[in-house]
């Protein structure tokens, strides 16, 4: 503000508006918060190949139920009704201050892009996964490993994919990718 007062003084002294001579430095006069570091921290590793773990039990009814639930829901905050065994509504996250905060658990919301048996309001950005087992597994066109990799990191199969990356970003665990895989490859009743 000092420059400005001086500026007025000069202006009256010389009885002229000497704006160009003693203009206030305005290069810091407005807000331009930093986002560069935020974006850097938000990046994730390059495409990664995965092998479906031996621990993946694709016929485990509980895994299929969790996969189904996560497939059809966005996050724990919006999840209504009883959750399948082993699935949480909230997760704990350590904040900057070191305190542990509860946050809604994120799910895949795969239905935003894929139709599948029983889907409500499904999107069509990805292919329909209806009848997937009969069409792709039983015909041996695909195997569970392909599905696991697709969900974990679809960039291996298609570098320009529009699909979400689910394991390499760290949003989900290996077990959760197993759960999705189990659901996708399972035999489903027509709903």
């Amino acid at each position: 503000m000092h420059t400005k007062i001086k500026c007025f003084a000069y202006a009256t002294l010389f009885l002229s508006a000497s704006a160009s001579l003693c203009a206030v430095d305005l290069t810091k006069a407005y807000d331009m918060p930093d986002a560069t570091k935020m974006i850097e921290k938000d990046m994730f590793p390059a495409a990664k190949a995965y092998t479906m773990p031996k621990s993946c039990n694709l016929t485990d009814a509980k895994a299929i139920a969790r996969g189904e639930f996560m497939f059809h829901n966005l996050n724990g905050q919006k999840a209504k009704g009883k959750l399948p065994a082993g699935l949480a509504k909230l997760t704990e996250k350590k904040g900057k201050d070191g305190k542990v905060k509860k946050e809604p658990k994120q799910y895949g919301n795969c239905v935003a892009c894929h139709d599948i048996e029983g889907a409500k309001g499904a999107g069509n950005i990805g292919p329909s996964l209806t009848g997937y087992k009969a069409m792709f597994l039983d015909t041996k066109a695909r195997d569970a490993q392909f599905v696991y990799q697709k969900i974990a990191d679809p960039r291996i199969d298609n570098p320009n994919t529009h699909m979400t990356v689910n394991l390499t970003t760290g949003l989900f665990t290996e077990q959760e990718i197993c759960d999705y895989t189990a659901y996708v490859v399972s035999e489903k009743k027509k709903k």
Partner: peptide
């Protein structure tokens, strides 16, 4: 900024 995938789901503006 528009093209760079980032965040929990690995999406960019361009993904959608």
């Amino acid at each position: 900024t528009y093209m760079t995938p980032r965040g929990g789901r690995g999406l960019s503006c361009n993904s959608c």
